[in-house]
C-alpha cells in the first residue's frame, strides 16, 4: 500500500492504526477529517470527492517525504476518500508513529495542512435545500470581478 493513497471504499481508523504500529515507536497521532452537516451557513446533506488521482498520488507522496525529512517519523500513512460520502463518514485520515510524541503531533499537522492545500481533490456539497456546489470554486466565481484576468 502506498503511504499516500485514495480510496473509493470506507476507511477505518483501526486499519490505519494497525498499518502504522511499529516497535520503534512510543507515540501514535492520527487526524481524521469527517463529513459534517454544515458549511458556510448551509445545511449539508452529503458530499462527493473527486481527484486528479495520478498527480494527487505523487503530490501526496511528496508531502509525506517532506514530513519525513522534517520530523523523526517511524511510519506514516494517509488515505483520502473519493466518491459519495454521508454525514459522519471519514473523509481523510493521517496516521503517524514516532519514537516520541512531539514529532507525531507536528508531522500529523504538517501532512494534513499540506494535503488540503496541494493535493488536487475537489469537494462537491449537496445541501438540504436542493442546491449543490463545488467548494472553493463557486465562491471564487462569485468574487469574479475583483480579480484580474491574467491570474487564471
Amino acid at each position: 500500500m502506498n503511504r499516500f493513497s485514495f480510496s473509493h471504499e470506507d476507511v477505518s481508523g483501526e486499519q490505519i492504526r494497525r498499518l502504522v504500529a511499529d516497535e520503534t515507536s512510543g507515540a501514535y497521532v492520527a487526524f481524521e477529517g469527517w463529513v459534517r452537516n454544515h458549511n458556510e451557513g448551509q445545511q449539508v446533506l452529503r458530499l462527493e470527492y473527486e481527484a486528479f488521482e495520478s498527480l494527487g498520488t505523487k503530490e501526496g507522496e511528496r508531502i509525506i517525504r517532506e514530513a519525513e525529512q522534517r520530523f523523526g517519523i517511524s511510519t506514516v500513512y494517509c488515505v483520502h476518500r473519493l466518491g459519495k460520502l454521508e454525514i459522519g463518514d471519514l473523509a481523510v485520515i493521517v496516521g503517524v508513529s514516532t519514537p516520541h510524541r512531539g514529532e507525531a503531533f507536528e508531522a500529523c499537522r504538517y501532512i494534513i495542512d499540506e494535503v488540503k492545500h496541494r493535493v488536487p481533490v475537489w469537494k462537491k456539497e449537496h445541501y438540504v435545500n436542493g442546491d449543490s456546489g463545488w467548494v472553493n470554486c463557486e465562491r471564487c466565481a462569485a468574487a469574479a470581478h475583483q480579480h484580474d484576468h491574467g491570474e487564471h
Partner: peptide, 26 residues
C-alpha cells in the same frame, strides 16, 4: 503530463493537460 507546470510553459504535440480549479480536500 501529470506534473504541475507554469502557465507560461510551451505546449508540445501530444501533451496531456489538466486545468486544476481551487482544491478542497479534507
Amino acid at each position: 503530463n501529470d506534473e504541475f507546470s507554469e502557465w507560461g510553459a510551451a505546449l508540445a504535440e501530444g501533451d496531456s493537460i489538466v486545468f486544476i480549479p481551487p482544491v478542497a480536500g479534507g
